[in-house]
């Protein structure tokens, strides 16, 4: 899904003034237009954050794959896992497209063995264990996306980060329900 690229290039074409001319130049790959060092530095920073986000999505995709193939999930839960995984694949593709548009090099996924070790997959013994792991990762991802928002130089990327956080929050909410957890009593439990 190239929603970000599309919206950015649409904006660039109509010249709504939301992005500076220099930023538009960068997004279009015309580095010559990026006159100030400030803009270039910001973009490198944005690319670094986007690549960290991409690494997070790679891990989420692997985690759902491992969960779906674990033999621990019922057919219904497997369907949900595959659906959430497809969201993370859309996130991955959107992030990769954006990183490339900004002139960066998207980070590759690690090998599956590395994810299995890092996520301590050997300890998963039941469907509940898998759902707990997924819920933890989704909550962490929602908070990660919220916590990087202030660091983006480009406000459009900050909004994209908020949209990604909303998707992860949706996943977390569904998983928490499936696990029979009560929803938080207090508001503003995310981010901050």
């Amino acid at each position: 899904m190239r929603f970000l690229q599309n919206s950015l290039s649409r904006r660039a074409m109509v010249g709504s003034g939301v992005l500076s001319a220099a930023t538009i130049g960068l997004l279009a790959g015309e580095h010559a237009l990026a006159g100030s060092k400030m803009v270039a530095t910001d973009t490198a920073g944005d690319v670094a954050i986007l690549n960290v986000a991409l690494a997070l999505e790679h891990e989420a995709i692997a985690a759902y794959q491992i969960g779906a193939e674990s033999g621990l999930l019922t057919a219904d839960v497997t369907a949900v896992a595959v659906s959430f995984q497809s969201h993370h694949k859309e996130h991955r593709d959107a992030l990769m497209g954006t990183i490339e548009t900004l002139g960066g090099q998207p980070a590759d996924p690690k090998r599956r063995r590395a994810y299995e070790r890092a996520l301590n997959v050997a300890s998963l013994k039941s469907q509940t264990d898998v759902l707990e792991l997924a819920a933890r990762l989704e909550l962490g991802a929602a908070n990660a996306y919220l916590g990087v928002i202030p660091s983006f130089g480009n406000r459009d990327l900050a909004q994209v980060s908020a949209r990604l956080a909303a998707d992860e929050t949706m996943h977390w909410t569904a998983l928490a329900q499936a696990l029979g957890k009560s929803l938080p009593g207090k508001a503003l439990m995310f981010g901050g």
């Binding site: 960290v52 690494a55 997070l56 891990e59 070790r117 890092a118 996520l119 301590n120 933890r136 990762l137 909550l139 962490g140 991802a141 929602a142 908070n143 990660a144 916590g147």
Partner: peptide, 13 residues
Amino acid sequence: RCTGCHSLDANRI
């Protein structure tokens, strides 16, 4: 807040 990217004993993101 941190375990989206970090763990105590494993390198992740």
